[in-house]
């Protein structure tokens, strides 16, 4: 099972980047979301996966019983998920606004500021 995760992360990164390079606005959003998911999953896996045990110290003991899962990557992950969620929500509203204002969902047409 664990051997599958790196491949899954790789595929998520690749698909996210591919969608971002696409010229359709909706696929840009999909790309952003998938890329965010890939980074989160990477952070989770690279911190080390441990089965079955958590880092809560029992009342009778001084330290948690080994082996336990490292709680730091999980804390980082939670923060990263929340931040990613906020930015993705903003991006979705922005894309909707772009579509309303420019009446186009083709990213190639977003070049009026580059012409002088």
């Amino acid at each position: 099972m664990e051997i599958l995760l790196p491949f899954m992360i790789g595929i998520l990164f690749a698909v996210g980047l591919y969608f971002m390079l696409h010229r359709h606005l909706f696929k840009l959003i999909l790309g952003l979301i998938l890329f965010g998911l890939a980074t989160n999953l990477f952070l989770f896996v690279v911190g080390g996966i441990t089965r079955s045990s958590i880092a809560i110290i029992p009342e009778t003991e001084e330290v948690a019983t080994e082996p336990y899962a490292d709680p730091v990557p999980q804390a980082l992950l939670l923060t990263a998920i929340v931040i990613g969620f906020g930015i993705q929500a903003f991006a979705i509203v922005l894309v909707r606004r772009v579509y309303q204002t420019l009446k186009s969902n083709n990213l190639d047409e977003l070049n009026s500021t580059d012409k002088t």
Binding site: M20, L28, L32, G36, A91, L94, L102, L107, L110, N111
Partner: peptide, 13 residues
């Protein structure tokens, strides 16, 4: 809006 969408995408990346 045009500028912002480029800025948001690349900085998210």
């Amino acid at each position: 809006l045009e500028g912002a969408i480029k800025y948001v995408t690349i900085n998210f990346l």
